[in-house]
């Protein structure tokens, strides 16, 4: 009798936790960050620092482009750090909400001895 109750409890707990795990699975892939509509795409061999080569644009567009490029660069770096560091021990997890991820990354800072920069870039990547 006691054994049956134990099994029922185990099944109940497992069902709850599997449900939690399934609920955490993102339903849609993350959308790529939107670029300003008037931003021309760079060709593979274009030089982003060559002002003469660029068409006339407003200051705002240049700033937006600069910010987006920096964010994209940090995101790419964060993804690389994430694969190098997190993948050494476990399967890469999906993304969590920012404040949850901030707690988890602090835990990993201690446990996996991530460097300060790794922590910042991985957090940025995982919360965007």
């Amino acid at each position: 009798m006691k054994r049956n109750w134990m099994l029922i409890c185990c099944l109940g707990v497992m069902t709850f936790l599997v449900g939690t795990a399934i609920a955490q699975e993102p339903t849609k892939p993350e959308a790529a960050p939107k670029l300003p509509a008037d931003m021309p795409l760079l060709s593979a061999n274009s030089n982003p620092n060559d002002e003469n080569a660029l068409p006339q644009r407003t200051k705002r567009t240049r700033q937006a482009r600069h910010t987006t490029k920096r964010e994209q660069s940090e995101r790419a770096e964060g993804e690389q750090r994430f694969r190098e560091n997190c993948g050494r021990c476990h399967q890469p997890p999906h993304k969590f909400p920012p404040r949850v991820m901030a707690a988890a990354i602090r835990h990993m800072r201690v446990r996996a001895m991530l460097t300060d920069e790794d922590m910042r870039l991985i957090l940025k990547y995982m919360t965007q």
């Binding site: 707990v13 497992m14 936790l17 920012p98 404040r99 949850v100 991820m101 901030a102 707690a103 988890a104 990354i105 602090r106 800072r109 300060d116 922590m119 910042r120 957090l123 940025k124 919360t127």
Partner: peptide, 15 residues
């Protein structure tokens, strides 16, 4: 340490 994101307490683990 974590930029502008304030971490919250979490319960995690495995079973």
């Amino acid at each position: 340490q974590t930029g502008d994101v304030k971490p919250i307490p979490i319960l995690q683990g495995s079973a």
